[in-house]
Design a protein around this nucleic acid. Structure first.
Length: 202
DNA sequence: AAGTTCCT
DNA sequence: GGAC
């Protein structure tokens, strides 16, 4: 059984889980997903555009607008979400469980000035299943707190190929991305970071 | 604190 | 902490 190389506030980090070839293959899979389900800019319930662009694969996609945070069965432009790339499911099988596949693979695209405020992943029906997150491209400063608002936090730089599993007591921990370090990965032309977040939704 | 939220 |  694989062991995390780092544990930050209960979040298990598998540094360098994907080698360069696996990362490049995954990027091609994601290009196919984005061709079918274009990236969009979600708005917060207050109407403010988020700095990340996103899309999803799987039964559900995560979505946000003035009506709130939720999962949707279709892309905002219509039609089902593409299927989750098999290589992503392989990571889930290896680090979470082969017994149940995720319903959603959220694809977040960060430009050099994109951020993600601290938040909990709590739009799912069953918190017993961990959340799995894959980093691709530029380095990102990941901040992790506890499951209560206002608590202490720790930060760690995530690199391309790293995988984070948030389960157990860490399933509802607050987490976010404070900063992208542009140009630190050759995976994309220029700069950019993609984060995949896989979740069991219902 | 998916928001340099906004409000009680 | 909750709502939008």
């Amino acid at each position: 059984m694989a062991e995390p190389t780092l544990n930050v506030r209960g979040c298990e980090i598998y540094e360098g889980w994907l080698d360069g070839d696996a990362q490049a293959a995954l990027v091609q899979d994601l290009r196919d997903v984005v061709a079918q389900a274009p990236l969009f800019t979600p708005r917060t319930p207050r109407g403010k555009p988020m700095s990340v662009r996103m899309t999803s694969a799987g039964k559900y996609g995560w979505y946000s607008d003035r009506r709130g945070y939720r999962y949707e069965g279709a892309h905002p432009k219509g039609g089902p979400w593409p299927t989750i790339p098999p290589a992503v499911l392989d990571i889930w099988r290896a680090l979470v469980s082969p017994a149940r596949m995720p319903d959603c693979c959220l694809i977040n695209y960060y430009t050099s000035d994109a951020r993600m405020g601290l938040h909990q992943d709590r739009d799912e029906a069953d918190f017993a299943w961990p959340v799995l997150s894959v980093s691709l491209g530029d380095d990102a400063l990941f901040r992790i707190g506890s499951d209560t608002k206002g608590g202490a936090t720790s930060s760690v730089w995530l690199n391309s190929g790293d995988v984070v599993v948030m389960g157990g007591a860490a399933r509802l921990c607050y987490h976010g991305i404070d900063r992208i370090r542009p140009g630190t990965s050759a995976l994309f032309q220029g700069t950019g970071r993609i984060n995949l977040t896989c979740r069991v939704v219902d």
